[in-house]
Design a protein around this nucleic acid. Structure first.
Length: 162
DNA sequence: GCCAACGTTGGC
DNA sequence: GCCAACGTTGGC
């Protein structure tokens, strides 16, 4: 099983919104590198749900991939800000996955905390200038983040992502 | 709101 | 294929 990090602006769609929705299509990703990661995701993969552009920014919860990549519907919707008139319906340019809420972390893990974790030193997330909205994390990074957020062994928070 | 960093676009 | 201009991201 692989692990990922998904960024979302909580003012637009935060972890509580995912909890409310239960399940959500992760659409609107319009960056090729991020899209390629979406396409690698498998059903059952776990994701850290990261609040960006927040005070503070950080990991708010855990989500799970419940449907592997399929064409992003918004690319063909002229009314959507994510509409891409150059995307060919026969070979859609953009993909999305479906995710569901697993659990909120007892404590948000601020970016500053992630920066201080040894496991996270090599992550693109903590590198200056990285704007990827979907990125892979190692099982060690996943566990360290969950632990920093107060994840408790024996619960869903200790899911062993290996 | 500022601004650094980066990706994309389009003229040539 | 180069590269300047532009738009966007996202921390602060």
């Amino acid at each position: 099983m692989a692990c990922w990090l998904l960024k979302s602006e909580p003012d637009v769609f935060g972890y509580p919104d995912l909890v409310r929705a239960g399940r959500e299509a992760w659409n609107g990703v319009r960056n090729y590198q991020a899209r390629n990661f979406l396409r690698e995701m498998q059903e059952g993969d776990l994701c850290l749900f990261y609040h960006s552009n927040a005070r503070p920014s950080g990991v708010a919860g855990v989500a799970r991939v419940v449907r592997a990549a399929y064409p992003d519907d918004l690319q063909f919707d002229p009314a959507s800000p994510y509409h891409d008139p150059r995307s060919d319906p026969a070979a859609p340019r953009w993909s999305m996955v479906d995710v569901e809420a697993v659990t909120a972390l007892p404590r948000l893990v601020p970016l500053e905390t992630l920066r201080a974790l040894p496991e996270w030193q090599d992550s693109p997330l903590v590198r200056k200038g990285t704007r990827l909205s979907v990125l892979p994390v190692t099982p060690e990074q996943f566990r360290a983040a969950v632990a920093a957020g107060g994840g408790v062994p024996g619960t869903a928070l200790s899911l062993n992502p290996t």
